[in-house]
Design a binder for these strands. Structure first.
Length: 411
RNA sequence: GCGUCUGUCGUCAAGCGGUUAAGACCUCGGAUUGUGGUUCCGAUAUGCAUGGGUUCGAAUCCCAUCAGACGCCCCA
């Protein structure tokens, strides 16, 4: 036997059983998002590497060590690790700045990140996401969060925790970073290796450290004082307060998590995550926030934006299993030409019908029918002569012989 | 990139150094050439992720590689 070729590490096949769940996610996405006026956009899986370096941020882990990048000709290409940068690129390139705001887009598709696979994390995974351009007011943040919650509800996922936070604007955030670094400076040598790296690269992420010794340091009163201080400026605070007001009015339950920072560079002001307790350590099903400077950074006109993405594999792992749909009918017959004709007739009328293509014995065909269909349509010599079909309900064993016309009222 | 554990038929598994590698499910065939889902018979791994090594002897011990699970980091 020839050598078997395996799937690539961190990727997997979506088999028929699971595909039913994907259809469910996709159907609900279109339904819910279009109620809010979102239109689907599909961008290429392949983009210029520079898009992510500039868009996602070259200090992020995603860009530094997780991208599938290769050279083709004289250009560097990358398999998209996320889709916000791609959508923004398309927004700018297709002149959507000229469209009447807000511009509301949603997408779904595969993303690629070179990471060590674990529960809820693959190298090829899929995201559904939404992006709204052109509205700086907090109502946009609220709508986007509300839509995420409603989408999850439509999937039957109700017991998820919404966490929000404000990162402030570049100005007030930088001031906070400085303060934080200052107060942590004396403890620098006591921090864990990761935290020492984060100290320069992204001090906000320090707060999230799970190492006990680091946690202990952060508990110190003078450091807590800085962490707990409302560092955001007046405008940012107002924005955040208004968002909370909207969420309260819309009955969205949430908690404010001051340690929520998120790892993509483009966020400012609002960030949020939706988490589940049933996912292990990769517990976020949805992550997003506001990214008011990204469009400008990528060469477009200054345009505020908010959005989020959900990991579809993580959603599916929270869904109950679905049964594969049975066929409406399975034709049991040893007259294949006639069976073929009947099958085609019914298919054209919208029924799902199969028949035995290899002319097996009657009992085998019936056995097959009972496994895959709701009704067995028996088409033997007698039936053909009288232009009828014997219809057997495979659940109740009821059987009656009817004319082909009456068949439609049974199936 | 780091750590821990795991890898026997399509699936779930027993075997843990000594003759032909249990069993169950699925699949296929037969009992049953017009009535299935119940039952009964039968078939299906010259091989134990792959490659080396130790041994008289390896699925069982050792090493490497590959793959998987979970955690760290990070993220959806």
């Amino acid at each position: 036997m020839a050598k078997i070729i395996q799937v690539i590490k961190g990727t997997h096949d979506i088999l028929p059983q699971e595909a039913e769940q994907w259809h469910f996610l996709e159907k609900n996405a279109i339904e819910i998002f279009s109620k809010y006026g979102y239109k689907e956009i599909r961008t290429p899986v392949l983009e210029a590497t520079e898009l992510f370096a500039r868009g996602v941020g070259d200090t992020t882990d995603i860009v530094n060590k997780e991208m599938y990048t290769f050279e083709k000709g004289d250009r560097s290409l990358t398999l998209r690790p996320e889709n916000t940068a791609g959508v923004v690129r398309s927004f700018i390139e297709n002149g959507m700045t000229r469209l009447s705001a807000p511009v509301k887009l949603w997408y779904k598709g595969p993303m690629f990140r070179y990471e060590r696979p674990q529960k809820g994390r693959q190298r090829q995974f899929h995201q559904v996401g939404v992006e709204m351009f052109g509205v700086k007011e907090p109502a946009a943040d609220a709508e986007v969060i509300l839509m995420a919650v409603n989408y999850l509800k439509s999937l039957g996922l109700n017991d998820l925790d919404v966490e929000i936070n404000s990162l402030g604007c570049p100005k007030c955030r930088d001031e906070f970073k400085l303060k934080l670094k200052e107060v942590l400076k004396p403890e620098f040598s006591n921090l864990c290796e990761d935290c020492q790296n984060r100290y320069e690269k992204n001090p906000l992420r320090l707060l999230d450290c799970k190492v006990e010794s680091c946690k202990a340091i952060f508990e110190k009163p003078e450091i807590q004082k800085v962490i707990q201080s409302d560092f955001v400026c007046e405008e940012c605070k107002t924005h955040f307060d208004e968002l909370k007001l909207y969420l309260d009015k819309m009955n969205v339950k949430y908690s404010v998590n001051k340690l929520l920072v998120r790892g993509l560079d483009y966020y400012n002001r609002t960030v949020f995550e939706i988490k589940s307790n049933n996912l292990g350590s990769q517990n976020a099903v949805c992550g997003g926030g506001r990214y008011d400077s990204l469009v400008k950074n990528l060469g477009g006109e200054d345009t505020p934006a908010v959005g989020w993405a959900m990991g579809m594999e993580r959603l599916i792992s929270l869904l109950p299993e679905r049964k594969i749909k049975k066929l409406d009918g399975y034709i049991v017959s040893n007259f294949s030409a006639e069976a073929f004709q009947l099958a085609e007739e019914l298919r054209h009328e919208g029924y799902s019908v199969e028949f035995d293509l290899s002319n097996k014995k009657f009992t085998k065909q019936l056995e097959k029918a009972s496994k895959v269909a709701n009704y067995a349509l028996i088409l033997g010599e007698d039936e053909i002569k009288s232009n009828t079909v014997s219809v057997k309900n495979l659940a109740t064993s009821e059987q009656k012989t009817v004319s082909k016309k009456d068949l439609r009222s049974i199936l």
